[in-house]
Amino acid sequence: MEKSKKQKANSLTKQRRKRSLVQALGALIINGNWKSFLDGTIYKGNLKHVCLPVLNCYSCPGALGACPIGSLQAVPNSAQFNFSYYVVGLIALFGITMGRWFCGWLCPFGWIQELLHKIPIKKVNPKKKIHQKAIWLKYVLLIIFVIAFPLLTQDRFGMSYPAFCKFICPAGTMEAGIPLLIANPALRQLVGLIFSWKVLLLLITVIGSILIFRFFCKYACPLGAIYGMFNKISFYHMQCSANCIECKRCARVCKMQVEPYKTPNSPECIRCGECIEVCPVNALKLGFIHKTNHDLQETTKATKLDEKPE
């Protein structure tokens, strides 16, 4: 039976509220070392042995874990190893289990971008052709700045620098740079040209996020690029069953410009689940689903038979 418009609107609102609450809690817990924001220091405990599943700068005063992208560059930058089995393994573990769910539900920087997008001014919806080309930028940044730079710019001691963090990452500037510079006068004296460049990139990201939903996640996040590659094979994934009527409501509600009825496991999908709430025939399922297409078709037939008397 088709859901009424009112039911759909209610469940969509509930889903949005639920996700906002999880995002807020996630940001608070991930950056739970709140007292360091006051004294301009960072957490130095054992939790920082482990990488977080989200892009969250480990120099953020509140950060309780290590940034996966920072760590991915840090190990090849050290004199000991050129490749990090531990960091690549952890990122792959997050990817294979949940795909981009972490982007949609836990990432503090993604949440900040969503809050910025709520500022009530006219929004920009990039044309499909431009969007389809622009999404490749994050893969370019991943390959050049995260992977190639640390390997190709090593000095004679085998050491290098984290190019993505140094030249690109606006999350580092927002979560670590600005709070530390405000609270720590000694650091303020070291500010130079690179910081100005990074503040410029942060400003572009902020303006971009106000105008375009998750501007940085869509076009520049290397962690999103990695998780996106896992979306197709992750344990947590989406399926569109045969009872899809191709009404395209899922595509219209999707702010990541995905067409869930065509590509339910698109690398761009952040698993926010809004498409599921608006589907009039409950064709979309998201979870640890293990049904084959045959099973799904059988379920659809059974559902249709059950609904006939109504």
Partner: peptide, 11 residues
């Protein structure tokens, strides 16, 4: 992770 990453904050 336990040392302030000057590169990360743009310094």
């Amino acid at each position: 992770a336990i040392n302030i990453c000057l590169d990360c904050i743009g310094i």
